[in-house]
Write a protein that binds this DNA or RNA. Structure first.
Lengths: 212, 212
DNA sequence: CAGCATCCGCTTTGATACTG
DNA sequence: CAGTATCAAAGCGGATGCTG
C-alpha cells in the first residue's frame, strides 16, 4: 500500500494493514492459528492467489507473520502470526462488534463457522461470572463451534469434550444468537434446539449496540 | 468497495469502511467534530478531492455521516457523524494503540496536533484515579492539545482554560510522551519543558505494548 | 498437490484543472 | 466553498502456467 505519509498512529497502522485482504488474512490466522498457504486460500474465498502471495510478503516484511519451514518429512510451510500480529486482535474484535449487525445482510455470501468466533467474543458476556465454567457446543450445517463461558466468553472452532449444552439449528438463527439479535431465552422460538443444560446457554448476555 | 461477500462481521465492516481514506475521514470527524468539506481536505493531506467526494457519498448512504445544510445566511454545509459513525471510535482507538509505535518512522510526514488525541486516549491512563481532575496543556509548534485526567484520560484540541501543567517542546518529544516511549519523569531529559504542577504530568501512565 | 509467478482486462486511485 | 471532469498510473480479479 502506498503510504498516507501522515504522522498519525491510525494512518501508520493502515499503511501496514489497510490494504484489501490484509486484515482478513490476519483474521484467519487469529481464528485458526498457524495455516498453510492453501488453508488461507480456503478461508479467504474470493482472493486471487497472486494477491495472497503479495500480502503475505508485505505482512512478513512488516513483522506481522512468519513462515515456519515445515518439520520434515512433510515439507509444508506454516504461516503464523508474530506477537505483533497477535496484537491486532483488539482491532479485529472492535471491527467485528461494529460489523455484526451487518451480518443480517449476508444472503448468498460465503460462510465459515470460525468467522463467528469474533462477534461471539466481542459481543457475548457472562451473566453469572464466578459460577464456574460452562461449555456450549454450537452445531451448524457442517461446522462446529465451542463457547467456554467462565467470567469471559471464549470461542473456538471444533467440538467440545463434554459440553454442558449443545445448540443446533439453521445458521441464520445461530448468527442471531451469537450477535445478540435474539436472546438465549428466545432460542427455541427462533428454530434452535438446545440439548443438555439450557441454563448454560442462558448465561450468555449479548452487549451489542442496537444500531442496525 | 467491492464486497468481500463473506458472512463475517469483520468482512462486512470492511465492506463499509475498508476503502482507502474512509477510516481517516472518520478519524477527522471524530477528532474535530462536524467539519466542512474543505476542513476535511485540510485534515487529509494527500487525498484527491474527487475521492473525498466519493467517499462522503458512500459513507452517507451507509448511514455513517450526514450533511447538515448550513444555517442561513452563510451557506456552509456541515458534515458530521451519525451515532453509527461515532460507534467506530473503539475501532480507531484500537488501531491507534497498535499503530502508535510506528510513529517513530514518520519523518517528513504531514503532522497535525489533533491526530495525537487517538494514541493519547488509547495509551495513557490515570495513575491516581480518584485524586480529582488534572488538566494538562500540550504545546507544539503551532497547535494546542489539552488532556483532562480524571480516572480516564480525555484528549482534545485547543487550549485549556486553567491548566494545572503546560508541557511544551519539539513535536518528536511530545509524541514520545503521548505514546509511552518516554515516561513523564523523563520528560525534561527528552527536551520537554513542564510549567506549573509537574505532578499533574506524572499522573500519566503509558500502557503501551512494547512491540516496536 | 502446495506455492507460487505471469499475463490481461477492468476498476480504483492520484494529480490536476475547471465550475456554480 | 464545494465540489465535477479528465486522464494516466496503480491496484485488483480471474485465468492459467510453472516448479518442487
Amino acid at each position: 500500500m502506498r503510504s498516507y505519509r501522515q504522522a498519525c498512529a491510525i494512518a501508520k497502522a493502515l499503511d501496514v494493514v489497510g490494504d484489501r485482504w490484509s486484515l482478513l488474512i490476519i483474521r484467519e490466522l487469529l481464528a485458526r492459528g498457524a495455516c498453510r498457504y492453501t488453508d488461507l486460500l480456503d478461508g479467504l474465498p474470493g482472493i486471487a492467489t497472486n494477491l495472497l502471495a503479495d500480502r503475505l510478503r508485505q505482512l512478513e516484511t512488516a513483522g506481522i507473520v512468519t513462515r515456519d519451514p515445515g518439520a520434515r518429512p512433510v515439507p509444508v510451510t506454516l504461516i503464523r502470526l508474530t506477537p505483533g500480529g497477535e496484537a491486532l486482535r483488539p482491532v479485529l474484535l472492535a471491527l467485528a462488534r461494529w460489523g455484526a449487525p451487518l451480518l443480517a445482510t449476508a444472503d448468498g455470501d460465503a460462510s465459515q463457522a470460525h468467522w463467528l468466533t469474533f462477534p461471539a467474543e466481542a459481543i457475548l458476556t457472562d451473566r453469572k461470572p464466578g459460577k464456574g465454567r460452562a461449555v456450549i457446543e454450537i452445531r451448524t450445517e457442517d461446522e462446529l463451534l465451542t463457547l467456554e463461558v467462565d467470567g469471559v466468553v471464549h470461542a473456538r472452532t471444533g467440538r467440545a469434550s463434554r459440553p454442558h449444552a449443545v445448540v443446533s439449528g439453521p445458521r441464520a438463527a445461530l448468527v442471531d444468537l451469537l450477535t445478540g439479535r435474539i436472546d438465549p431465552s428466545e432460542a427455541a422460538a427462533a428454530g434452535l434446539t438446545i440439548g443438555g443444560d439450557a441454563k448454560a446457554v442462558r448465561r450468555l448476555r449479548a452487549s451489542a449496540d442496537r444500531r442496525a
